[in-house]
Design a protein around this nucleic acid. Structure first.
Lengths: 187, 187
DNA sequence: ATTATTTCTAAGCATTCGCTTAGTTTTGTT
DNA sequence: AACAAAACTAAGCGAATGCTTAGAAATAAT
């Protein structure tokens, strides 16, 4: 009854995600999105309402990508070691050539101010909590750990992971490896 | 021979710093600076050349503020404990009411892309290295540590500190305390 | 083939961006 | 008092921002 879309929404979001990941939210203009996604501004607004809509879909897509790493962690049954592997997997995941882009979500937390974008901020805190819960359940695999210690260690690990998101942009591969090594020494 | 400036440059930079710290570089417009600094755009450009100039002066001012914390660390003679105190001091320093603003420098590293602002990026990496060196010299106060371990631990501590800069925006006071506690358990 | 519906292109909207400039006011020197 | 130099005010510059709209092109049902 009508014309067909000449683009696949998931495909263009995939391209938008790469752009947001590399440049951040504010620094990515709708004109840049238009160019990278290969579709007109009209189509962008028709499919995703506005720039924030594109970003939220990008976060969704980013989540599906990191879901693979999370599933690997969930299925791992070797406690702390599984978490350590997740750290390495994340570094590999966030690398594009020799460039580390950090974590799209962490980058965004740093950029977006809660008061002026509660919607996005909620998406982001949920994302972080999901990973934290995976850490908790893996830490519980060690029966000798008390539950109060587990909560502390989960926060500690999240802090290290947040740090890595920035550190990966500044430190070299050897240093990053050392950081992860030392991080897991006392768990 | 000419009219006097009706403002003190350090005072207006102090106000600019607060604005950059709260909003980030890009999200702080010259109009906002004008309002917060209490001087006209003409005066801003006359005194600091451009927006980047205001930011670089803000970084300078920020450094003088954090210099106090650094001097305390430098004078401390209790190795790892002194570094741990620096972590707490930083958290207190970055707090405004109940709001954590993170580290101005860390926030900026996350926002500014190296390729399009090498000048700022150099300022930032220097800043980070200075703190790292303080960590190294404090770690050396423990004679039992090997120098290779010290370098690794310095990177590890910088990673935790970078993490705290973000984590402080998301986690509560109790969690932050726990994070620092666990971070220093195995040093 | 006609028609209705959706997607496309491309121009343009108001607003904000960093920055400049014309012109006035203040100041110290002569 | 006359002048020169710097600092002020306020308007405005071109470019970029997010977003909208008018109209042409394509598609499916009738």
């Amino acid at each position: 009854m009508a014309r067909k879309k000449q683009y696949n929404e998931e495909e263009v979001i995939k391209k938008a995600t790469a752009l947001f990941w590399k440049n951040g939210y504010e620094a990515t203009s709708v004109r840049m999105l238009e160019k990278e996604m290969g579709i007109n501004q009209f189509s962008i607004y028709a499919s995703f309402t506005n720039k924030q809509g594109v970003f939220l879909e990008s976060i969704k897509y980013y989540k599906t990508q990191i879901h693979i790493l999370k599933e690997k962690l969930r299925k791992s049954n070797n406690g702390v070691l599984g978490i350590q592997q997740y750290f390495y997997d994340f570094l590999e995941f966030s690398k594009e050539g020799s460039l580390h882009k950090g974590c799209l979500v962490t980058n965004s937390v740093n950029e977006i101010k809660e008061e002026d974008n509660t919607l996005i901020m909620n998406e982001l805190t949920n994302f972080a909590n999901e990973i934290r819960e995976l850490f908790v359940s893996n830490l519980k695999q060690d029966d000798s750990k008390e539950s109060s210690a587990i909560e502390k260690q989960a926060d500690y690990l999240m802090n290290s992971l947040l740090g890595l998101s920035i550190a990966s942009k500044v430190f070299n591969q050897e240093q990053l490896k050392n950081i992860i090594e030392v991080t897991f020494l006392n768990l």
